[in-house]
Simulated assay, not measured.
Amino acid sequence: MPPSQPSTTGGGHSSAGCDQWIDSQGRTLRFEQRTTLRGQANVNKITFTEFGDPVTVTAPTND
């Protein structure tokens, strides 16, 4: 693991789990991640919607 990425095996990290909801077309609709770090429970939830809508992407400049 790169030095800039701390390990999750130490520092009080005691549990982790996730769930993923997938539709009939194989697309992720929702992703939920649960962790416990130093006794503090954390939940991250991501919901995906509006599949197929056009998206405009502009590449960043070399500033």
Results as ranks from 00 to 15, higher is better:
40 Q>M: 10
33 Q>E: 10
41 A>S: 13
41 A>D: 08
44 N>P: 02
32 E>Q: 12
54 P>S: 10
48 F>C: 11
30 R>G: 08
61 T>P: 08
44 N>Y: 08
37 L>N: 10
33 Q>K: 12
50 E>F: 01
42 N>P: 03
39 G>H: 03
43 V>P: 06
46 I>F: 06
43 V>G: 02
34 R>T: 15
36 T>Y: 00
47 T>Q: 07
26 G>M: 03
29 L>P: 07
26 G>W: 01
51 F>L: 04
50 E>A: 14
31 F>K: 13
45 K>D: 05
46 I>G: 02
55 V>C: 03
34 R>A: 13
61 T>S: 14
40 Q>C: 05
63 D>I: 11
32 E>R: 15
39 G>N: 06
27 R>K: 13
53 D>V: 14
38 R>P: 04
25 Q>C: 11
30 R>A: 11
50 E>V: 06
29 L>N: 09
49 T>V: 15
35 T>D: 10
43 V>S: 09
36 T>V: 15
38 R>I: 04
33 Q>T: 14
40 Q>K: 14
50 E>N: 15
26 G>H: 05
34 R>W: 05
27 R>W: 03
63 D>A: 14
47 T>C: 03
46 I>N: 09
38 R>N: 15
45 K>P: 00
36 T>I: 11
43 V>W: 00
52 G>F: 03
35 T>Q: 07
61 T>Y: 01
28 T>G: 08
63 D>M: 05
31 F>P: 07
49 T>W: 00
60 P>M: 04
54 P>L: 08
34 R>L: 08
23 D>E: 02
58 T>P: 04
23 D>K: 07
50 E>I: 02
41 A>K: 14
57 V>Q: 04
63 D>W: 03
47 T>I: 12
42 N>S: 12
27 R>F: 07
61 T>R: 14
55 V>S: 03
40 Q>F: 07
31 F>S: 14
35 T>W: 00
25 Q>F: 11
43 V>L: 12
36 T>D: 02
46 I>P: 01
43 V>N: 07
54 P>N: 05
58 T>M: 06
42 N>G: 13
60 P>T: 07
30 R>C: 07
42 N>C: 11
41 A>R: 14
57 V>F: 10
58 T>E: 03
60 P>F: 03
60 P>R: 08
46 I>W: 03
42 N>R: 14
55 V>W: 02
32 E>W: 00
63 D>C: 08
25 Q>Y: 12
51 F>G: 10
35 T>I: 12
37 L>F: 11
47 T>N: 06
23 D>Q: 03
25 Q>V: 13
24 S>G: 14
47 T>R: 09
42 N>K: 12
63 D>Y: 06
34 R>F: 07
54 P>K: 11
38 R>W: 00
46 I>C: 04
51 F>W: 10
44 N>H: 10
47 T>W: 00
27 R>T: 09
63 D>P: 15
42 N>F: 04
61 T>G: 15
57 V>W: 05
45 K>W: 00
58 T>G: 02
54 P>G: 09
42 N>Q: 14
52 G>S: 04
53 D>W: 01
